[in-house]
Design a protein around this nucleic acid. Structure first.
Lengths: 236, 236
DNA sequence: GTACGTTCTAAACAGCTGTCTGAACCACAA
DNA sequence: TTGTGGTTCAGACAGCTGTTTAGAACGTAC
């Protein structure tokens, strides 16, 4: 039974750490609170994982794996209609943040989106890249091939931005609009709104650009323009 | 000259604190780094402000005031066209985050949006409410009075979400699309995209709902539905 | 000169942080 | 019974945290 007990403690630590990291962030979270919530000794983290940072990495890996299994980005047959695929992507994206069974993962990934750590790079980035690619492909089916790459990205971002607002500013939204609670019904209506709103925007983009296809304003970054960070993400 | 010197130190502390708070967040920021960056003694914070928390509040107040003066939400004449007003709101919102003269304010308010503190409530919330109201009024001009309040909010959120994505996930966007740098030109094109994309979405919403105006699906929060936090924001 | 109020400084404080140590514990095998 | 290997525990450790103290430095007024 010792093996069982070990896995129990290890698992309880992962779970507790996930909650605490999601609630307070890496720095503000304390190993003592994690261990207390897991019903374990303070030294447990040092024994089962090497240190706090490694534990954080394992939490990210664990959560990322679970959520990717629960809500994969490409479950739909390729033959499905663009509208169907877009709706599925919007639904998947929102559910990843609001499914109560996934508990703290949404908050945690929300933090990583704003302040990516080196673990984001190693574990989650491929997932985000995958989503961005799926979304871009689907968006392409609406806007056609007449628009610039930059505009294509802006279109994808417009869809993603509409989804991300809700987990990102959820506390403030709850203040501004106390009646909008994140029930399953509300999320269904939200998915419908974002999908239709986006499709209208996408089709309009295609329409607008059909006329001025000649002008190719791919204004590349000027040499003098300041670059944003482009290297590795910092350690947590 | 003593008064002058005092204001200098006080001002340098505010500036340094703004940078450090924006970079690390309240908890992770240390008074020692703030004072070091301001070229002041560790006790300076305790002398000029009472403590770290009060300093944070002053930083928020200072930044909020500066940004509200630089980019007010309602500079446009009420008589302007809806499209003009929407574009102005999008521009103002984006510029508040990306104007280099406002330096760290964007990052700071970005943090507060995700994790509002009690200072957000006391200082910034009125500003956010004001923006939400202006945006909703403008959106209303596009969608008319045939849609539900919930749909109206979703429409406003769709506009705001498109704007917020860029400051929110800026580090990740810089990784995914290294060529999109936040130059003035890029922001101009971004404003144009979001404005037109949104207008198409809004007009479509009006069109869609013209038919089913009978059905009034204001499904209020069921008694059993879980509420999100609705009280005061936590201290930082 | 002395006295005074403001501002700054070095040093110290208690409390919390992550990490580590050595012993205790426990089921099981010889 | 006596080990044995994996697990847990209380306690200690150095380092950093925000905050406070006593006093020095300063310019000003008398």
């Amino acid at each position: 039974m010792e093996k069982q007990a070990t896995e129990d403690t290890s698992q309880r630590l992962l779970q507790a750490a996930g909650e605490v990291f999601a609630e307070y962030g890496f720095r503000a979270a304390t190993v003592r609170e994690i261990c207390e919530r897991a019903g374990a000794n303070v030294a447990a983290i040092n024994y089962h994982f090497r240190d706090k940072e490694t534990l954080y990495g394992e939490v990210i890996r664990y959560a990322s794996k679970r959520v990717a299994e629960t809500y994969p980005f490409d479950p739909e047959p390729k033959g499905a209609s663009p509208e169907f695929r877009l709706r599925a992507l919007v639904r998947t994206y929102l559910m990843r943040f609001f499914d109560q069974n996934l508990a703290w993962y949404g908050k945690l990934i929300c933090r990583e989106l704003a302040e990516p750590t080196s673990f984001f790079e190693r574990i989650v980035e491929s997932d985000v890249r995958h989503y961005a690619q799926q979304l871009t492909e689907t968006v392409r089916e609406f806007v056609g091939h007449g628009i610039s790459d930059e505009q294509l990205r802006m279109c994808s971002n417009s869809v993603a931005g509409q989804c991300l607002l809700y987990p990102y500013t959820r506390l403030i939204l709850a203040r501004l609009y106390p009646d909008d609670v994140m029930t399953a019904d509300f999320i269904d209506r939200l998915i419908e709104h974002i999908t239709r709103f986006s499709i209208a925007g996408l089709r309009d983009t295609r329409r607008r650009d059909a006329g001025k296809r000649k002008r190719n304003h791919k204004v590349n970054a000027k040499s003098g323009a300041r670059r944003v960070l482009n290297g590795a993400f910092p350690r947590p």
